[in-house]
Design a protein around this nucleic acid. Structure first.
Lengths: 171, 171
DNA sequence: TAATAATAGTTTGAGTTCTAAATATTAGAA
DNA sequence: TTCTAATATTTAGAACTCAAACTATTATTA
């Protein structure tokens, strides 16, 4: 760990940050295409399926919170999943506004066949890093996500976000 | 500000990483909508415009390299920009396969009015971090982008794995 | 010269993603 | 009861995004 890096590394501008974010977004997209080829589902579709499996019968709203997508997006994804009969929609009896999502048997089976959502090489690389290093990276991602978060952006201009905020209301 | 990483933080799994990436992608998307409202252009459109301004008359291919988007995507973005007469397409005389993009006067003007592509609060936060901290974050993003990069994934240098070789019975 | 390959861009088709508007339902108040 | 507000979800509309197929053009070769 050298601290000599400074002269070759001037403080990065947010422009540089933007470029790296673009690369990450693109790579994620490309991986999604790979996953589609391998199992017929996109990454968001898998994430929704997994959320349903994990949470049991859930509303669209809870799913959208869990996977960080808007309600509308979850609905369109659900439409496709329902077409393929991987999930069912079940209206609540007590409150008929509510729609609960439930995995079908084949939905559950399909989940078994899904490859990792990040390239295996990525996972391998990531997991072969030292734990401390992993935490650094993860914490940086959390910080970036936190700094970009719309709600906190409106709410707290000068929040101390240096510390990854856990313990929110999450589930 | 050193003690916040409690030891209740076990090594993060790649699943956790994926969630953070989602948040970042979503936040970027939301910011794009904000930018649209403010200046009528999306972030990718601005990025293409800037690349053209920066590089002078450029081919679609060079733009797509510069902004990390596929050629096809750049084409569709160019279509919209051309409709609004922010860019022109100019076929090369020497090689008529080649199309050069050029900013129009109004394209150049519009660029002046574009707000920052990351939320100002984000920029402010990021820039108020210590330089070392900025570098940490930036370098983490670079690492993630690098680990995810498709080409390097194929090359996969540090793979001496007992990788689960999945057998492919079909397709 | 004609056939073939290589290159540059565009179109097509499928999917994701958002906001805003629309729909349906429930709960509370006049 | 009926009106209104709040809640849960869906639809409509617009962009982005990619791979793959397609068009047009240039270069190479027989």
């Amino acid at each position: 760990m050298s601290e000599q890096m400074k002269m070759t590394d001037p403080a990065p501008s947010w422009q540089d940050v933007l470029i790296e974010l673009r690369k990450i977004i693109r790579a994620t997209d490309l991986q999604s295409k790979r996953v589609v080829k391998s199992c017929g589902l996109t990454i968001p579709q898998v994430m929704v399926l997994r959320a349903i499996k994990q949470l049991g019968d859930v509303t669209v709203k809870r799913i959208s919170d869990a996977v960080s997508l808007s309600q509308a997006t979850v609905t369109t994804i659900m439409n496709r999943l329902e077409e393929r009969q991987l999930v069912e929609r079940i209206r609540s009896n007590t409150d008929r506004r509510i729609v609960n999502a439930r995995l079908t048997v084949s939905g559950d089976q399909v989940l078994e066949t899904v490859p990792p959502l990040l390239h295996e090489a990525f996972i391998h690389r990531f997991e072969s890093l030292e734990s401390l290093q992993q935490q650094h990276i993860f914490s940086s991602l959390q910080q970036v996500a936190g700094m970009m978060d719309a709600e906190s952006l409106d709410a707290a201009p000068l929040l101390d976000i240096a510390a990854p905020t856990r313990e929110r209301t999450d589930k």
